[in-house]
Amino acid sequence: MSIRHGLLALLERGPRYGSQLRTEFESRTGSTWPLNVGQVYTTLARLERDGLVSPDGTDEAGHTLYAITEDGRTELRAWYERPVERTNPPRDELAIKLAMAIGAPGVDIRAVIQAQRAATIRAMQDYTRLKAQALTAIESGQARERDDVAWLLVLEQLIFQTEAEARWLDHSESRLVRLSVLAERGAPTAPPQAAPTAAPTTAPARPAAAPRAARSRRG
């Protein structure tokens, strides 16, 4: 679980208090995954229960400090060494939407794809602009260089993810165009009334439906 291990990783650099952990987590990841202080304290409580961190006195301002334990270091090491699990693909609203849009009445799937493509590319433009800023910050060699490099990696991950989405949209569109071309070629004898928009009660629609079903079984 990423927040748990993220906090352990920060505590490995020395004892810290809750809101300090939150600030450092966010500056590493550019606030891409905002944390609230409540989440930080809940997570610290669980880490303490599991013996991975322990309270470590207070600082001058009276903040309760936490320190990583030996078990915590072992767990952190194991986290770095173990690939991220992929047993369940995360639910993807876009994939679900396209899956539902296939054959949905009154839905122009190419329009759905294009609206998403524009939004996806726009997100990439934003990430790319932020990336240019991060690169400038790194080149200027300011004090927060390590945070800037971390932020750059996170941004580039977002760019690659959106790029994958844009490519998949392009692919889906050309795939659908190709398949619809094939479907049209495959039914040359169908009378014009057999088109999907024809009234369902007309007799000629039925013979056209049969070969279509047969084709899909063969495919």
């Binding site: 966010e26 550019g30 606030s31 905002p34 997100a123 990430y127 602009r129 800023q133």
Partner: peptide
């Protein structure tokens, strides 16, 4: 503007 997408740091 980038801020519309990622709050905070940007």
């Amino acid at each position: 503007e980038p801020d519309s997408l990622l709050s905070g740091r940007a």
